[in-house]
Amino acid sequence: MSRKNNTAGILAGLLAGAAAGVILGMLYAPEEGKETRKKIKNKANDLKDQAKNKYGEVSEKVKDQYSNISSTFKETASSVAHTVKDGYDKYKDQIVSKTADVVKNVESELNDLKK
């Protein structure tokens, strides 16, 4: 998560720096105030559109990463569940078999003692 926050912070910083640079450049340019304000408004709209586009791109990347992570997690959880189930079945059968052997041995010993 911190990497995503860093990327978003860097992106916001770059956009803010670019906007500030453009505005300062326009304010110091030797043009009429009306023309300067028009340029600032147009540039602000351009920057807003760029920010929306970048937000959409970053949002899609995050969704894709989440989808990949979610899919990988589900596959891993399923694999672990199958491994545990297979191990349980394997050892259950062995325990049942060994228990049956022990019961036979105990019965045999008891029968020998009765004789």
Rank of each mutant, 00 (worst) to 15 (best):
D89Y: 06
S97D: 07
N105M: 05
V106M: 10
E35R: 03
H82R: 15
D101V: 05
V106L: 11
V62L: 07
K92H: 12
K61L: 09
S59Q: 13
N111L: 14
D112L: 03
Q94K: 05
T7Q: 07
T76L: 12
D49N: 09
I40A: 04
P30H: 11
K39Q: 04
E32A: 11
T83Y: 10
D101C: 00
K54H: 04
A29S: 07
A51H: 08
K54Q: 10
A44H: 11
N53G: 14
N68R: 15
G17Y: 04
Q50M: 06
A44I: 02
A16P: 01
D93P: 00
K43A: 15
N68G: 13
E32C: 02
D46R: 06
S79P: 01
K74Y: 13
A12S: 09
G17T: 13
T76Y: 08
G21Y: 09
V62Y: 05
V62K: 08
Y66E: 12
E107H: 08
G56A: 09
K63L: 10
S2Y: 03
T83H: 15
A81Q: 12
E31N: 02
L47D: 08
I69M: 09
S108H: 12
E32Q: 00
Y66C: 04
V62I: 08
G87D: 01
I10W: 03
A18K: 11
N42P: 01
V106C: 01
Q65L: 11
K61E: 09
K52R: 11
S59D: 13
G25N: 03
S71P: 07
S78D: 15
L11C: 05
V22R: 05
L47I: 15
N42D: 14
Y88S: 02
L113C: 07
R37S: 07
N105V: 06
L24W: 06
A8S: 13
V22P: 03
L47E: 05
V106R: 12
A18Y: 05
K4N: 12
K48Q: 15
E75I: 02
A16F: 01
G13N: 05
I10C: 02
L47T: 13
Y55H: 08
S2M: 01
V58R: 03
F73M: 14
G33N: 07
L24Y: 04
E60C: 10
K4L: 12
E31K: 02
H82G: 11
V58E: 05
E35W: 11
Y91P: 03
V96M: 09
N105L: 06
